[in-house]
């Protein structure tokens, strides 16, 4: 996968969480993932078309997403509830938007669909392209999450 796509998704993720949740996540080294099991407790996936065909997913541990959404809403949230699941979709939508804007400035035109949220123990992320995906791991002081990208 073109490193410019990886960088756009890393920068987009950091920008969204810094601005909306006042949390600056620390990216780790990307790696290849072959199984469909999600890495987190709640995930959202969004289809991409245009110059990048495939899908982008964000998968959060309960600890990280509860703190992120608490900060976004200015509320003390205790568990993965409807607001948290809803927010994961919106965060994924925003990360997709910022990343695609960054890619547009480099000559790539990428269009996104509306995100789908999946939650629960041992849930899976099924990318449209079906092949192996690249995982970009992130750490926060409240837990980890990953950006999971599969492009054809």
């Amino acid at each position: 996968m073109d490193v410019r796509f990886i960088n756009a998704f890393i920068d987009g993720t950091i920008d969204v969480l810094k601005t909306m949740a006042f949390i600056e996540p620390r990216p780790g080294k990307p790696y290849l993932k072959k199984e469909t099991a999600a890495q987190g407790d709640v995930s959202a996936i969004i289809g991409l078309t245009g110059d990048a065909k495939g899908s982008l997913a964000l998968s959060f541990s309960a600890g990280s997403i509860i703190k992120i959404v608490s900060n976004m809403l200015g509320e003390d949230i205790q568990e993965v509830n409807a607001d948290v699941r809803d927010a994961v979709g919106e965060i994924t939508n925003m990360v997709s938007g910022v990343s695609r804007k960054c890619l547009e400035s480099q000559g790539f035109n990428v269009v996104a669909a509306i995100p789908t949220v999946v939650a629960g123990k041992d849930h899976t992320i099924r990318h449209v392209m079906g092949g192996p995906s690249i995982i970009i791991p992130f750490e926060t002081d409240y837990g980890s999450f990953v950006v999971d990208v599969c492009l054809g």
Binding site: V16, G97, E104
Partner: peptide, 27 residues
């Protein structure tokens, strides 16, 4: 107020008569 920051989106909104445009995320 939208995550759609692509130039063609902004142009389409302006043509349709939008008063202003904010790209998510925002403060």
């Amino acid at each position: 107020v939208t995550a759609e920051a692509l130039q063609e989106n902004v142009v389409a909104a302006v043509k349709a008569g939008v008063s202003n445009y904010i790209v998510k995320p925002f403060t």
